[in-house]
């Protein structure tokens, strides 16, 4: 028969599609929409990575990556973010089993790992600025602080969202809306970890090779 439709079948099909179009669950497209937001966020990071790639070698006779970066600190930071990704997964698993307290505890642990990551990053920034390696010092440092700072800002907002959800779940339980919010934050949190892979590879590790 092939793919050609008779007019009767075409009419039948059209009717079916029209009926189906109206059968949308509330919030049913939220996850896809949020994914598309993340893709646009990915483009922001692509531009910041490109900027860093272009300017990353212009030290203006100032300090370079080898003078500034401490790889053991970066390794510790990466571990924090990786652990938080896994514990967020455990929070999701608890939420599927409708265990409110367990979900909250895993969210709390995830948040603490996130805070540890931010603290280490801020310590690194403070240390660099104290040594005179401020964003104004060179094009390399401007690009570095913008890229890594934007990632850190995302983690900060992720933690704010995470704490908000902990209270939401405590007050309203694991309702359908809250489960959807948890799934969105899950995408956000794991996405930030993917971006961090790019940061530690191209900024820190490649920086030490320059």
């Amino acid at each position: 028969m092939g793919h050609a439709l008779t007019s009767e079948q075409a009419a039948d099909r059209t009717l079916f599609l029209q009926l189906d179009e109206h059968d949308h669950e509330a919030g049913g497209s939220t996850l896809l929409g949020f994914w598309i937001y993340l893709m646009s966020d990915c483009l922001i990071f692509a531009v910041l990575f490109a900027t860093y790639g272009v300017l990353g070698g212009n030290y203006a006779a100032g300090p370079g990556p080898k003078d500034l970066f401490d790889l053991s600190l970066v390794a510790l930071n990466t571990t924090m973010l990786l652990l938080s990704s896994m514990t967020y997964g455990f929070a999701m698993l608890s939420s599927y089993r409708k265990k409110v307290a367990a979900t909250q505890v895993w969210l709390l642990i995830t948040g603490l790992f996130g805070l540890a990551f931010l603290s280490i990053e801020l310590y690194e920034f403070a240390h660099m600025i104290h040594e005179g390696a401020t964003p104004q010092r060179s094009a390399f440092l401007s690009a570095f602080f913008t890229l890594v700072g934007t990632h850190g800002l995302h983690v900060t907002f992720g933690i704010v969202w995470l704490v908000t959800l902990m209270f939401q779940i405590g007050r309203h339980g694991l309702t359908k809306a809250n489960a959807r919010r948890l799934a969105c934050l899950s995408l956000f949190w794991h996405f930030l970890d993917v971006i961090w892979i790019g940061v530690f590879t191209f900024v820190y590790l490649m920086g030490m090779l320059r």
């Binding site: 996850l31 790889l71 053991s72 970066v74 390794a75 990466t78 571990t79 990786l82 990704s85 896994m86 997964g89 455990f90 999701m92 698993l93 599927y96 489960a179 959807r180 799934a183 530690f200 590879t201 590790l205 030490m208 090779l209």
Partner: peptide, 28 residues
């Protein structure tokens, strides 16, 4: 929603640890 399982998260974590440890070892 796409559901993960405990096995998936643990596999992902172990693979990530290995894939992170190698590049850091190469430089440190």
């Amino acid at each position: 929603e796409p559901h993960g399982t405990l096995k998936e998260y643990l596999t992902g974590f172990i693979l990530s640890v290995i894939l992170t440890a190698i590049p850091f070892y190469l430089l440190m």
